[in-house]
Design a binder for these strands. Structure first.
Length: 863
DNA sequence: CTCGAACGCGCG
DNA sequence: GTACGAGCGTTCGAG
């Protein structure tokens, strides 16, 4: 089997060919003639069963593990990789010289400090203080040492010391580039020169080689270190970890330890044990055996070090061959997609994008953050003081606000001492102080209500002269039940703590807002700042139910938008010197995909003619012609549109309108909005129903390029679970398709960056201009280039880059990225995909890219 | 004292 | 019990 030939160089072309514009008629799945015969040939599978035949486990053979010590040997093994079309590879990394020196200096300083405490104490108190201090220093040293031992995971604090390569199972070659023991690669060279020689060779022979599948377990890690040396790992690529996790999720989810974090317990070593029954060497044990901190302190040309390194490449390759046999069996026959294609063209290449974004990170302005932090502190202090003063005056009690302003102490004063009305309870029946509860409590105080059920009394019409009606008089009994309650409400004396309560609630909202900003978005981000780059390097994983990305440590996808953020955290994210940030986002992305997936004619028409979907929905809800829809009515329609995509209910819509738009609407009004929206786009509810029915047969739903989400609850006897799965069935093909399309675009950005970077590298080697070299090759000039147009972040429908502060660089990148994003996802996609770009020196200071280019060029001319 | 559940809030 | 997806900081009570 020649694997290299299976992959096209242009993924979107092969995908467009492979996928029909419309899902295939399910009757096509049945072999002719006759359904009865077909059932006899292919028995009907249970929902969620892919009928995977698990491959036999290959026998492990005597291993051919050797060190490569010369350039000639390295070239020869690259020949073998090329001939076989496979190259499994792995880095071993160790702390950089700078990281080692910094830690040694720190350690010496701390040890001196600790030793200085060992003199004779003056008295008992002094002895106690010294002991406490000693303990503290020792704890600090331990913490720092632990962080130091993790530096090999950070490409900014470490270097590749060893490379292992495998072109076939049971063999591996290890290149000890930089070791303090054993023989090393090309020993006459400096280690920097040796590393460059290896990287350049891998780049030339393997990374750019379209005939070789580049295989790495956890490819995002390998990608980061490649980027560190200016290298890009071009298609075809594979990440066996992604293969086995994705295959297990659909083919045998019971084997996973944690469905929400499916890679848990499924790293290379446990996976190799589980699949091949082989116990691989453990890294920590190996280092402990030799009493060293890092891998480069032991020999890798022979013995344990050689085997440890060699095994990774060997088993990585074996996993690839094994899981590929499973992936090709996982298919969505309705739309003709299969996991092998999705994995090779979308999901595994995307591991590189994750690595690249994690490597690049985003710049952070400590000075501005500190100024705003101090501002927030004083706002909080002021609010806390006033709250306490009000509380003392009202009920003679101080409140301990904690950091959140929502402690039991707060609840005690508000609800036990002041007897304020309560909002909705929490899930577990407690007193809620969330945003909705605060809004409701304020509303009740303002309207003198005791609970929210009285809200409806405010709109009860009363006959003239009701003020004079006496309770139990004849007139009184002419009133309806609600009218009598309304009269009683209006005669009710005001709440004794109305004014003070309202003021306290307002102050608490402000105090809470500042707390969230400070804890989660200022301190909670800055603490992850990289000591070398000074940037925030958010992590990403693709392990979500819809195949979206998630982000953590810190979460780079929940930075507050400016309109919700008094401190302007987005302003702390800045471009480096000589750089500018470039933002590009899909517009109305998920609604466009919903238009495609549902085939709703009205939505398709709107997107094809540049119409305004929110206005259209506003017209449907208000029963007005579109031209008469007010700005407010259009705004009101937005949550109805988004809600529709989630299979939303009037309850949820009511809450969204209350908390996000500050308006109170009755359930009936919200039901009118939900209904009106569904009627305006009749294809959507039909699609939502049909896909749920389809999922009940199949047990899964899938995305445009073939990601599959199992929905085991879709046939549950529990109505709540079943309906919930039904909404997921309707939403996952939308949200997951958006994720697929974004991943595809980012994969293409990675490839193009590799192409441009390679052109620049080659031209430099030849002493040529890259544009001339490109012309010589018959290629476009470099557009995206490492170090000039770096992709830093993804927020579901948006990419963020840091680019050279140069209008030519930005303009070329803009046009290329925008064209890439707006290509139809598949042939015959019924609506245009649009993407909008902007630039700014800080995230919070975006301006239109057109305007910036104009101004920049005018300034250049002037200068 | 540690740990996890509950709560609440930021994003698309 | 009433919307899809996700992470994280704080509080509080259980062990």
């Amino acid at each position: 089997m020649k694997l290299g030939g299976l992959f096209g160089n242009m993924p979107q072309k092969t995908l467009a060919k492979a996928l029909p514009a419309k899902p295939a008629d399910s009757s096509q799945l049945l072999p002719l003639p006759g359904a009865a015969l077909a059932r006899a040939i292919a028995p009907k599978k249970r929902p969620g069963d892919f009928g995977v035949v698990w491959p036999t486990i290959p026998q492990q053979q005597v291993k051919d593990y050797k060190a490569i010590l010369t350039q000639a040997e390295l070239e020869a093994y690259a020949d073998r990789c090329e001939a076989l079309g496979l190259c499994s590879f792995d880095w071993e990394t160790a702390a950089s010289k700078a990281a080692r020196e910094a830690f040694a200096a720190y350690k010496a300083e701390m040890e001196t400090k600790i030793a200085n405490l060992d003199g004779f104490p003056m008295d008992e108190k002094d002895a106690k203080e010294r002991a406490a201090l000693k303990k503290e220093y020792e704890a600090q040293l331990t913490t720092t040492r632990e962080a130091y031992l993790m530096t090999p995971l950070d490409p900014h604090q470490s270097e590749v010391c060893t490379v292992s390569l495998a072109a076939a199972p049971h063999e591996s070659r290890v290149v000890p580039i930089d070791h303090k023991a054993g023989r090393i690669f090309e020993p006459t060279l400096s280690r920097e020169a040796a590393r460059k020689l290896v990287m350049d060779t891998l780049d030339r022979r393997i990374f750019r080689n379209r005939k070789v599948v580049k295989i790495a377990v956890n490819l995002s890690f390998e990608t980061k270190f490649a980027a560190k040396y200016g290298k890009y790992i071009l298609l075809p690529v594979a990440d066996p970890l992604v293969m086995w996790v994705r295959c297990l999720q659909v083919a045998d989810p019971k084997r996973l330890n944690d469905l929400k974090k499916p890679a848990t317990g499924w790293g290379l070593k446990p996976a190799t044990k589980a699949v091949f029954g082989v116990n691989m060497g453990e890294f920590k044990e190996l280092l402990a055996k030799y009493g060293v901190d890092f891998f480069d302190e032991i020999a890798a040309d022979s013995g344990d070090g050689l085997v440890y390194s060699a095994e990774d490449a060997d088993y990585g390759l074996q996993h690839y061959l094994y899981w590929k046999q499973i992936a090709i069996q996982i298919k969505d026959d309705r739309q003709g997609t299969n996991y092998d294609t999705w994995l090779h063209e979308i999901e595994m290449p995307f591991s590189r994008v994750i690595g690249l974004m994690e490597y690049n990170g985003m710049g952070w302005d400590n000075h501005l953050a500190q100024m705003k932090r101090e501002e927030a502190w004083s706002i909080q202090t002021e609010a806390a003081n006033e709250i306490n003063q009000l509380s003392k005056e009202a009920v003679g009690m101080e409140i301990s606000l904690g950091k959140t302003g929502k402690t039991n102490s707060v609840k005690y004063v508000l609800f036990n001492m002041m007897n304020l009305p309560k909002g909705k309870p929490t899930d577990k029946g407690g007193i809620s102080l969330d945003e909705e509860a605060l809004i409701d409590i304020k509303f009740m105080l303002e309207n003198n209500l005791e609970d929210l059920t009285e809200e409806k009394l405010l709109s009860v019409k009363l006959p003239e002269g009701w003020e004079s009606y006496l309770k139990d008089s004849p007139e009184w009994y002419e009133l309806g039940k609600d009218q009598r309650a309304a009269v009683e409400l209006r005669n009710r004396p005001p709440h004794p703590f109305k004014d003070v309560g309202l003021r306290m609630l307002e102050l608490m909202g402000r105090y809470q807002k500042m707390n969230t900003l400070l804890s989660s978005h200022v301190d909670g981000r800055e603490k992850w700042q990289n000591p070398v780059t000074g940037k925030i390097h958010a992590s990403y994983t693709p392990w979500t139910d819809t195949s979206r990305l998630n982000s953590m440590k810190p979460n780079g996808q929940n930075v507050p938008r400016l309109e919700n953020d008094e401190l302007g955290v987005r302003n702390f994210y800045v471009a480096g010197p000589g750089k500018i940030l470039f933002f590009i986002d899909f517009s109305g992305f998920e609604l466009r995909i919903l238009a495609w997936k549902s085939g709703d004619k009205v939505m398709i028409e709107i997107f094809c003619t540049g119409g305004d979907m929110h206005r259209k929905t506003g017209a449907a809800i208000t029963n007005k012609p579109e031209s008469e829809v007010t700005k407010q009515e259009r705004t009101d329609a937005k949550p109805a549109n988004f809600g529709m995509a989630y299979g939303g209910t009037e309850h949820a819509l009511q809450k969204t309108i209350k908390t996000d738009y500050g308006q109170r609407k009755t359930l009936a009004e919200c039901a009118v909005m939900v209904d009106g929206t569904k009627k305006a786009y009749p294809g959507v509810p039909v699609f939502q129903h049909e896909i749920a029915m389809q999922a009940r047969e199949d047990g899964f739903v899938s995305t445009i390029y073939g990601y599959i989400r199992l929905l085991p609850d879709i046939n549950s006897t529990n109505t709540y679970y079943r309906q919930s799965a039904g909404r997921q069935a309707a939403n996952t093909p939308i949200q997951g398709t958006a994720a697929d399309v974004m991943k595809k675009a980012q994969n293409e950005v990675y490839e193009e960056t590799g192409r441009g970077t390679n052109l620049v590298f080659d031209a430099t080697e030849k002493g040529m201009n890259p544009v001339d070299l490109a012309r010589e090759f018959g290629e476009a000039p470099p557009i995206l280039v490492h170090g000039k147009t770096d992709m830093e972040a993804q927020i579901h429908d948006e990419m963020i880059f840091e680019m050279d502060d140069d209008p030519d660089v930005v303009e070329a990148a803009w046009h290329w990225v925008q064209a890439t994003m707006t290509k139809p996802p598949i042939e015959g996609f019924p609506v245009p995909i649009e993407a909008e770009a902007s630039v700014g020196y800080a995230w919070g200071k975006k301006m239109s890219v057109e305007k910036w280019l104009e101004e920049k060029r005018a300034a250049q001319k002037g200068a």
